[in-house]
């Protein structure tokens, strides 16, 4: 029995060459890479691409990166954080230059996705650079003028480590349907009015809509972070099917 290949419903997602249009420092450990794809038929906010690097001896390394830009934009933005001993992240952060060719393929994934036609409310919870796919959702929400009620609870070590902070602040200031909450876990300014420490049940309950409103949750961050937040939501009585998660990094277990 060779039941290995059923009829294909979708064409292969081919490798292609993108041209690096710009590189922006976001924080001391994070940069955004702006890429012009050779061809792109659009994506859903929350999807990712695979990047493939090839050395002159044929050695290759592949990693996945979430797309931070909304489908309304022609250029793709990937936001990359430095990973200790990360051969791909260190290349992208230290070696890659504007004008370089970067091999990638995508868009990939149809689980951790949202677009305005799916409605809301949506509650987004980010740990560190877990903000990236959620930012694509928020940028799409803004560009498509979707007044879907939304909240973003964003946990970062310090104010300086919040990626896209200015853009998020501006977005929230102009939009009464978007609630933005930062939780700073390690360092905060003396006059910090926001949440100090990790996201706890009280902060989550206050900013996650009610069960009657039937929100969809998108949680992205390190494994332990996602585990903690999603267990709290299950405990609050939200339906597991409405809690979509994307975990990265080591389990720490």
């Amino acid at each position: 029995m060779t039941a290995t290949d059923t009829p294909l419903q979708y064409p292969r997602i081919e490798w292609q060459i993108g041209c690096v249009q710009a590189i922006m420092a976001e924080t001391s450990r994070v940069k955004s890479i702006i890429l012009r794809p050779a061809k792109w038929s659009g994506h859903w906010p929350g999807q990712h691409v695979d990047i493939r690097l090839t050395a002159d001896d044929g050695y290759q390394a592949e990693r996945s990166y979430s797309i931070a830009s909304p489908p309304e934009e022609q250029l793709l933005t990937l936001t990359v954080e430095r990973v200790e001993d990360g051969e791909v992240s260190s290349y992208l952060l230290d070696e890659l230059r504007v004008g370089d060719a970067l091999e990638f393929r995508g868009p990939i994934g149809r689980h951790f996705i949202w677009r305005q036609s799916l409605g809301g409310p949506i509650c987004l919870v980010a740990g560190g650079t877990g903000i990236t796919p959620l930012m694509a959702m928020l940028r799409h929400r803004k560009k498509s003028r979707a007044y879907t009620p939304a909240s973003l609870i964003y946990s970062a070590r310090s104010l300086a480590e919040i990626v896209y902070r200015d853009e998020l602040d501006t977005m929230a200031r102009d939009d009464i349907d978007l609630r933005l909450v930062y939780a700073l876990t390690r360092e905060y300014p003396g006059d910090w009015n926001g949440h100090r420490g990790r996201i706890n049940e009280a902060l989550l309950a206050e900013n996650s809509f009610s069960r009657e409103q039937n929100p969809t949750f998108f949680i992205c961050g390190p494994a332990g972070f996602v585990e903690g937040i999603s267990s709290m939501l299950v405990k609050f009585g939200f339906d597991s099917f409405a809690i979509k998660t994307e975990r990265f990094g080591p389990s720490g277990a």
């Binding site: 809690i243 979509k244 720490g252």
Partner: peptide
């Protein structure tokens, strides 16, 4: 092809545990 070695055991799931 396309894989790298890890010594820890990452956790990936679609939803809550």
């Amino acid at each position: 092809p396309g894989q790298y070695l890890t010594t820890d055991f990452p956790v990936l799931s679609a939803g809550p545990t």
